[in-house]
């Protein structure tokens, strides 16, 4: 699938119609990428690292609280894939990045990038594969890396190190979750 097709499909999707053509495009998307079967140590190139960082930051952007990049999520994702994920998932991750490289993700503008990821999110739901899809991997690792980092956790939740008691309470409006 080329860059124009992706944008077209993204546009279609954002327009509310989810057509057969986008499905077909997704098939191409999957076929167009060749898995990295080297079996070598999992290492990302500079461009791939940059893409991971940009995607993580789109998932958890900096707001009045830190974003994914601020708390080191991009490096965390790479480390986790290397240490805790098996080859099929690592390959799936590399395939996802290869696809995004093909559509020159990094040269898209912010809206286009979000559009591509929305498209990817919808398509991921239809994928039937033994390995974990790229979008799922990057999303779960971004959330894990962010919400369990010291800055991310403390900014997001009410951190209670030692509760000391167990109490049924009523939630106050806008109350944050407790984290332990």
């Amino acid at each position: 699938m080329n860059r124009r097709e992706v944008i077209k499909n993204v546009a279609l999707m954002l327009g509310g119609t989810f057509s057969a053509s986008s499905l077909m495009a997704m098939n191409h998307w999957e076929q167009s990428t060749s898995p990295n079967k080297a079996g070598a140590v999992f290492i990302l190139t500079d461009i791939q690292q940059k893409m991971v960082a940009e995607i993580a930051e789109i998932i958890i952007p900096k707001t009045e609280t830190p974003g994914a990049k601020d708390v080191g999520v991009p490096a965390f994702i790479e480390m986790m894939l290397k240490d805790c994920y098996k080859e099929p998932d690592q390959e799936s991750f590399m395939e996802g990045l290869a696809s995004l490289e093909k559509v020159k993700f990094l040269s898209l503008n912010s809206d286009e990038r979000k559009g591509v990821l929305k498209f990817l999110e919808q398509e991921t739901k239809k994928m039937k594969s033994k390995s974990t899809p790229f979008w799922r991997l990057i999303k779960e690792l971004t959330l894990l890396g962010y919400f369990t980092s010291e800055a991310g956790l403390k900014a997001s939740f009410q951190y209670v190190q030692i509760p000391g008691k167990l109490e049924l309470i009523k939630l106050k409006p806008n109350q944050k979750s407790y984290a332990y």
């Binding site: 789109i58 998932i59 958890i60 952007p61 707001t63 609280t65 979000k114 990821l117 999110e121 799922r136 999303k139 779960e140 959330l143 919400f147 997001s156 939740f157 806008n174 109350q175 944050k176 979750s177």
Partner: peptide, 16 residues
């Protein structure tokens, strides 16, 4: 992880 979405509101919502 399994919910749709990303970005500001998504992030904010997950703190509750």
């Amino acid at each position: 992880i399994s919910a749709d979405g990303f970005g500001d509101d998504f992030k904010q919502n997950l703190t509750k």
